[in-house]
Design a protein around this nucleic acid. Sequence first.
DNA 1: AAGTGGTCTAGACCACGTG
DNA 2: ACGTGGTCTAGACCACTTG
Lengths: 230, 230
Amino acid sequence: MPEPAYVKIAGDLTRQIRSGELPPGIQLPSLSEIARRHGVSEIVARKAMELMQAQGLVRSQPRRGNFVAERPNLVRVSPERQMETAEATFHHESDEETQVERHTEEVRATAELAEAFGIALGDRCTRVVTRASEGGRPISISDTYQPLGIVGVDTATECEERLADRLPVPSHAEWLRSTPGDLVKTIHQKFWDAEGHLIMISDISYPMDRYDAFVFRMALKRQNSQGGSE
Amino acid sequence: MPEPAYVKIAGDLTRQIRSGELPPGIQLPSLSEIARRHGVSEIVARKAMELMQAQGLVRSQPRRGNFVAERPNLVRVSPERQMETAEATFHHESDEETQVERHTEEVRATAELAEAFGIALGDRCTRVVTRASEGGRPISISDTYQPLGIVGVDTATECEERLADRLPVPSHAEWLRSTPGDLVKTIHQKFWDAEGHLIMISDISYPMDRYDAFVFRMALKRQNSQGGSE
DNA sequence: AAGTGGTCTAGACCACGTG
DNA sequence: ACGTGGTCTAGACCACTTG
């Protein structure tokens, strides 16, 4: 009936983080230290840390320690961010130095890409890999595809984002330096132009500790409706 | 260097689920059975199960077993769902019998509610608690607040949803029968009318295994922009 | 009575980062 | 050399469900 020890420990630490007692970026006590303080075994302390990781409050660095997330209250807002470059977005979010690097290459449309864009299998597409880091820490990586000749989303009028928690693909895991078994926040984006043509798709991964929440703002098109929440 | 045993086990099971070999709702082998089959200790099997739980593929019922999620590919789409009642939404999502129960009461505005709605502290508000279940399994619970006199979101033209993974509040945890330490998907909704007045806020919780992903469809308002992904 | 998952203990080895 | 987190073992007790 009482709450488990690891929930209590996580709650204690969460309170200290939210109150500012444990500021962003600081190293938490080691697992053995937490275990000692709370009079439990190290496994329990680890479980508490895993719970906080899943909430994005803590980032674990193997052989270094556990650290409070750099921006425990940072929120990712859509579609505001679609209206600006990655550089501008991260510049707004951050005061630390942000690095964005891009690699562009031409690829042949896979079956999936061909169907999405309504082009032929093997048609040429542009692939852009964008890696962003802040203060040396990786904060995002994305894989973007467009039919050859279309660049950017200036002509897009509609956008869809699909948010899920997934094991990262190896290339994303490597950049984000995630430990095997660590989940990441993934966003699959699609952009359409006014004619209804899909002009870009993108797969983005964020470390769990990057954002506290994901916000989406939408206009409601009136129909017959009662509306409600659930 | 090699991937940990628990990742491999989770991958094996995930493949069996995605391929349909392990159909939705079925009970997985017990932890001791999984451990035996893979030649590892039970702790490792449990860790694999936790990884799958975090992805929403598996639901764990204490003292019963682990079960494949009922709808491993179900997606929650916004804002479509805001246009219809909870009953209609769940009816579309499901062929099983869905139960929705509502409790309405009048409450006094807390400081938070008063500020949100632009009313005075202690002013009367409507609170609606909505609980939904499907085939006896709880699938959502929400707490909705509106200023007295406003019912529903028929007049809403804008909507915001804030998605995060959180420890549930006790009332939500109880309905969802979540184990202490289990996270839930939370959505904090806000609705505004054409005059820019906030007319409804709602806190919704879903079990981790309810949805595979959350989809948001948004119109892009053109400005000066370069656009891009990150 | 047997089986199950949840919690917890008390160890162990490894690889790597830091001093 | 030491501390760290990641992985793993081999047990234990509890509370509850199922047969």
